[in-house]
Amino acid sequence: MKTHVTTTINGATVEFLCQPRQSLLAVLRDELSLTGCKEGCNNGNCGACTVMLDGLPVDSCLVLAVEAEGAEIETVEGIAEQGHLHPLQQCFLEGAALQCGICTPGFLVTAKALLEKNPQPSEQEIRFGLAGNLCRCTGYDKIVRAVQAASQASPES
């Protein structure tokens, strides 16, 4: 039997029907066409599916979609505002902080959460903060430098 779920995604109320066994990742991608979040490992190791759930970064492959009832979700699609890239997105782009790009949405969501909590993180704080996101093209140095650049570019600094 399908369950009716009402949730808020990137500021808009969204309703969907899902099976209890469906992950939030599966519903975001397959039912709601929010394909920014990626399926990497599907077991909570890689962070490619990271979304914000009630203000905290989570692996959406380890959340049942039915658990999203009443929750506030933010995905990578909600990061750019009114057609303008977020400073993090701009710095990833300018610093070429990606190779194949599969891990990038997850890194952006986690990095945004990190900078909101700690606007001026040290290199070590960035590396530990992003430990739940894996890049198998091994582009970590450029990713860390892009986050550092964005922390200097962000208006609150």
Partner: peptide, 9 residues
């Protein structure tokens, strides 16, 4: 225990 995403849950 895990990374930030795991510790959130």
């Amino acid at each position: 225990i895990g990374g930030w995403q795991i510790q959130s849950r």
